[in-house]
Structure formats: structure tokens, C-alpha cells
């Protein structure tokens, strides 16, 4: 039981995909311009991660090593396409805002990374919790980044105007702003954890 908890929480904290593993930066940079986009991308990626991890863990014994990568890719791509179609049908605005980055979840390193590093070795329950933890960690990181960017770059939070009489800092809306925010957050987290370790 304790081990399962660990599998879940490591994705949020010690092995956070963005801040610790530095994986999946492409969507993190591109769609984190608003909290809604960040949340949408986070949930979409979590769903794909969960689906692919469960299926891969289920069939891990039947898939020979030599052809595991093509099998993983097909499974992941299937889930991504399901997400894309569902989004187009039920959340067209979000689908328009996320644009190309939904289909690009296929090549998100986190998904294939977890399949390769975890799901193809562990049982279903552990893989499921691993996927949930990674997905929640990814979503949490995206929320943090997009909240900072939306607030500074647009003066809003979830679309509501928060900072009045404020000239939005466009820098944070553009790609360099995303790099800066992620860099400073990673730096800050490393600083805090190194301090805790030495204390």
C-alpha cells in the first residue's frame, strides 16, 4: 500500500515531469498562456497517460521486446485521437485554443517515457497510479506556469480581470516568457531542495 502511495506522489513532487524530469516542455511552453489552456492540456495529457499506461501494463507480457516501441506508439496515438475527437465534439473552443498541441501529445516525452520506464515493467494498479501521479504533476506544473503567465502577461486569472490599471507584460505571453518562468521555477525549486538537503 505504501509503495502505491509513493508511486502516486512521486509524479507530483520528487519526479515532477516538468520541474524535475524536464520532460514535455514543448506543450508546457506553448499552451501555458492561460490557465484554461493549461488545465485543458493537463487533463488531456493525463487521460492519455492513464489510458496508455493501463493498456500497456495489461498487455506487457504479450508484446515482444523487439516491437514494443511501435506498439506503444499505436496505443498512445489511439488515445490521443480519441481525446482530439472528443474535444472537437464537446469543447470546440478549447480544441481551437490548444490547436496543434493536442495531436502533439503523441510525441510528448512523458507519455512514451512512462510507458517505457514504468508501465511495461509494473502491474496495472501501480501503472495506473504512476500515470495519475505524473498527469497530476504535469497538470499542476502547467497550472502554476500558466497562472503566472496569464496574470503578468494579461492581468487576468481564468479570464477574470485581476490587475486593473496594469499594463500587461507581453513578454510573459510570448515564448521567451514561458522559458523564463519555467527556468526561474526550476531554479527556485532546486534552490529550496538543496537548502533542505543541507539543513
Amino acid at each position: 500500500m505504501k509503495k502505491l502511495f509513493k508511486e502516486f506522489f512521486k509524479g507530483i513532487g520528487s519526479e515532477n515531469p516538468i520541474f524535475r524530469l524536464v520532460l514535455g516542455l514543448c506543450p508546457a511552453l506553448a499552451v501555458s498562456t492561460s490557465v484554461v489552456n493549461g488545465l485543458g492540456m493537463g487533463i488531456a495529457a493525463t487521460f492519455v497517460l492513464l489510458g496508455s499506461n493501463i493498456i500497456i501494463s495489461l498487455i506487457r507480457k504479450f508484446i515482444p521486446d523487439q516491437i514494443r516501441i511501435p506498439c506503444f506508439i499505436v496505443i498512445i496515438a489511439t488515445f490521443v485521437t480519441i481525446v482530439e475527437l472528443a474535444m472537437k465534439a464537446y469543447a470546440p473552443e478549447l480544441s481551437k485554443a490548444l490547436g496543434i498541441f493536442v495531436p502533439l501529445i503523441v510525441v510528448n516525452c512523458i507519455v512514451l517515457g512512462r510507458a517505457e520506464a514504468f508501465a511495461c515493467k509494473e502491474d496495472v494498479l501501480a501503472s495506473m497510479l504512476d500515470a495519475l501521479g505524473m498527469g497530476v504533476g504535469f497538470t499542476f506544473a502547467l497550472l502554476l506556469i500558466s497562472a503566472i503567465r496569464e496574470l503578468l502577461g494579461n492581468g487576468t486569472f481564468l479570464g477574470f480581470l485581476i490587475l486593473k490599471n496594469f499594463d500587461p507584460i507581453l513578454y510573459f505571453m510570448l515564448a521567451p516568457g514561458a522559458l523564463l518562468v519555467i527556468g526561474l521555477l526550476i531554479g527556485g525549486i532546486n534552490f529550496l531542495s538543496s537548502k533542505r538537503r543541507s539543513a
Partner: peptide, 13 residues
């Protein structure tokens, strides 16, 4: 095996 995986994926899609 690849055929089976793809068949399943295709039918779901």
C-alpha cells in the same frame, strides 16, 4: 502481434 494491436486500435478509433 502488430496486426492485432493495430486492428484493435483501428476498430476503437
Amino acid at each position: 502481434i502488430l496486426f492485432l494491436v493495430n486492428l484493435a486500435a483501428a476498430s476503437i478509433l
